[in-house]
Design a protein around this nucleic acid. Structure first.
Lengths: 245, 245
DNA sequence: GACGTTTAATTGTCTGACAAATGAAAATTG
DNA sequence: CAATTTTCATTTGTCAGACAATTAAACGTC
């Protein structure tokens, strides 16, 4: 774990990279305590603030955690799926909003991925997953629900669908795809008619999963994907028309 | 953008969160210049090192970039897919290695996701994608290739397959799933016989994509997934037998 | 032995300073 | 006047030393 070919710039970045590499390679196992800041400062021949900047970089990625006190210090953090969800969602959301990704592209990706776990979900869904999906579908049918609340419930429904695959890796990968869509979905105004249709698809999906009918679930997801795209197209067409004259 | 309910701990984390929220909400647009470190220190009523620690946190997530000099400073960074790939892959790799995710689980997720983009890839693959896949398949047939090089080429093949869907969101989401598998795949020793079979599947996949045969590509991917699982099972069974006896 | 106290170690923060980079303004020169 | 060079102010990157807050272990007392 060494740094610094006499390059007095980016020292904290170099130190962060050295520690990060050690963690990735397994050289620093989980829960291992790093040397104290003072020790590292001496070891790397830099000042303590520089070491601290490096540690903050790692902390921002949840690679380490710090603890004050006599037995405190910086420890290699066990990266948990729950911790990674947040970062994944933030990154996905920013990628979509900063790169002018079209609604169609994001929507296509989302439904392609969801359909990928439909067969697994049909096989493994538990009563819990089904109950969550039913509850969200019911909430979506409540009158007076704002568009935002409708979208939030939609996301919750689809997360349950994904989680029903009982594969944490899949859940993690799809969390970003599903949740990052929410800001885009919020641009759509859902009429009572369109809400009704969407809830119909949701119920049909839950039915298919309950019957462990993978093909049926896939078909309903495909139909929902097509309908969502259609809705969005209408919204954007109207918006463009209003803008142009 | 405010902080600090008189809580003198985690000041840098609070500042980082405030700025991060401003970026996510769009309050700070891309390429906007943040105030100088000295100004922010005054604004937040903290010292400059504290501000710097906050900025380093954001820099580690590629949310900002910094530049020295007269017109320098910290700027809101346009998060690009290429930048996000690296973080996604690192995080996925660590998640797998730190959470004792079984080979079967990771492999299942990976192939489920790849099959999700097979139809799109069949539709949109370009000559470039096909050429890359052919080239990697050919490389895999070279004698004397180490297992690691074989795995690396395997990853390159599958990345081309994913990229052929021509959907950057899909490519981003799947980069982690595909690349994070590499360390796990490296645990497998590939016999000449098994390499031959895998290359056969790869060629068949490339053929199906070239013919825009979505169903065929899906079938070959499914078969490859099953074969990979079978190979892994053998390896782990042998390893367990050796350990126990 | 149980319980309160002290103490040492460690992170979190502050102050003040200097070095290095960098673009803009000013000065110089043709 | 135009082009080039020099100077300079601004900003980040780093350093040194200091103090506060936290925490668990060591210690002392009853």
């Amino acid at each position: 774990m060494k740094i610094d070919p006499k390059n007095p710039a980016d020292l904290s970045a170099q130190i962060a990279k050295a520690i990060k590499d050690a963690i990735i390679s397994g050289d620093l196992p989980v829960d291992e305590r790093l040397p104290s800041e003072a020790e590292m400062a001496e070891q790397f021949a830099v000042s303590r603030p520089t070491v601290r900047e490096a540690l903050k970089r790692l902390g921002a990625q949840s690679l380490i955690r710090t603890q004050r006190g006599a037995t405190g210090g910086a420890f290699v953090n066990r990266l948990r799926f729950e911790d990674a969800y947040g970062q994944q969602i933030t990154t996905s959301t920013l990628l979509l909003s900063m790169n002018e990704v079209s609604f169609a592209t994001a929507c296509e990706a989302r439904y392609a991925l969801e359909r990928a776990c439909a067969p697994l979900s049909a096989e493994r869904r538990t009563a819990d997953h089904l109950a969550t999906m039913r509850a969200e579908a019911h909430r979506q049918s409540q009158p007076g629900l704002t568009d935002e609340a409708f979208c939030a419930s939609d996301v919750a429904f689809h997360r349950a669908l994904v989680d029903a695959a009982c594969n944490p890796v899949l859940s993690y990968q799809l969390a970003g795809a599903v949740e990052a869509m929410q800001p885009l979905m919020n641009m759509i105004t859902f009429s009572a008619r369109s809400r009704e249709k969407i809830i119909g698809y949701h119920s049909a999906i839950a039915d298919a999963l309950e019957a462990q009918d993978a093909a049926g679930a896939d078909a309903q997801l495909a139909a929902l994907a097509a309908y969502t795209q259609e809705l969005a197209q209408d919204v954007f067409a109207q918006r463009d028309a209003a803008r142009n004259g």
